[in-house]
Amino acid sequence: MTKNENENKNKNGFELAANAALLVIDVQKGFDDASFWGPRNNPAAEANIAALMDAWQESGRPVVLVRHASRAGSVLAADQPGHAFKDFVADRTGQESLLVTKTVNSSFYGTPDLAAWLTAQGIGQLVVSGIQTNMCVETTARMAGNLGYDVLVPLDATHTFDLEGPDGLRLTADQLAAATAVNLQGGRFARVVNTAQLLAVSGAARLTV
């Protein structure tokens, strides 16, 4: 580790493993349908995810793309245009180390088996990004923490949508993202970080977010 890398580690409070895997979850065109999902938060999410993907490629770390295949009737169904990756991810396909397809919230219940692949590669640290913050990102991060992985979640490289729950209770996307941050770090499933911190310790050239 160079002097600058060590200083970055001390400043940010964590170290990024040489083989830390970046999970990019469900960054699909179907999530652009505001009439289906409603208001979203964090318009910078896509730029931050792209910056992380570029940094991971430059530093030679593995990238895992995860794609949701909903059942019929959803904008994310495999036979719908919304199933496709957003353009900035599609432009970077072919660089990933693994592509996982899932039908539920957790990336660990997909094909091929994510945990088996991580074990075979000797990977113990995961950086979890993507859509939606409080759904597939949080579920994957929680399960990864339960499985013993060291999990980092750059909250600004995720986004979600307003959501209504019981008795008409409605939370905004920002409120849901804040709850996810508290759940993950307060529950010791993961450390919540930001994109700039990860870029600073990635070992890649400085990138603009």
Rank of each mutant, 00 (worst) to 15 (best):
L169Q: 15
R40N: 10
K29E: 14
E58C: 00
K11W: 10
R71S: 10
A173W: 01
G168I: 12
M135N: 12
D79G: 08
A47T: 05
F88D: 03
R92A: 14
N6W: 08
G38Q: 12
A90G: 08
A78H: 01
A20C: 09
V151W: 01
N134G: 05
A50Y: 00
R191C: 03
P112I: 01
L198C: 10
L169Y: 09
A190L: 03
D174T: 11
V27T: 10
A69Y: 00
A69D: 05
R170I: 11
V127N: 11
P166H: 14
R67I: 11
N12C: 11
S74R: 03
A190I: 02
K11S: 04
N48Y: 07
A204N: 04
G145I: 01
L65R: 06
S59P: 02
S202G: 04
L199K: 13
R40K: 14
T158H: 09
D32R: 14
T111K: 13
N4Y: 06
P112S: 08
A190G: 02
L22G: 14
T180H: 05
S107G: 15
V63K: 00
R92I: 06
Y149H: 11
L152T: 04
L169E: 14
V128M: 02
Q132G: 09
A18Q: 12
V89R: 01
L184I: 02
M143L: 13
A144Q: 02
D162P: 00
P112T: 01
N42T: 01
E15S: 13
M53Y: 07
A77R: 04
S70A: 15
H68P: 04
N42P: 00
L99G: 02
G168N: 11
L98D: 03
L76K: 10
T208W: 00
D91G: 07
G82R: 08
L184Y: 06
L118W: 02
E58K: 12
S35E: 15
T133E: 01
V137T: 08
A178S: 08
S106Y: 05
A84L: 14
A17M: 01
V104K: 10
G110S: 08
L52D: 06
Q125M: 06
G130L: 10
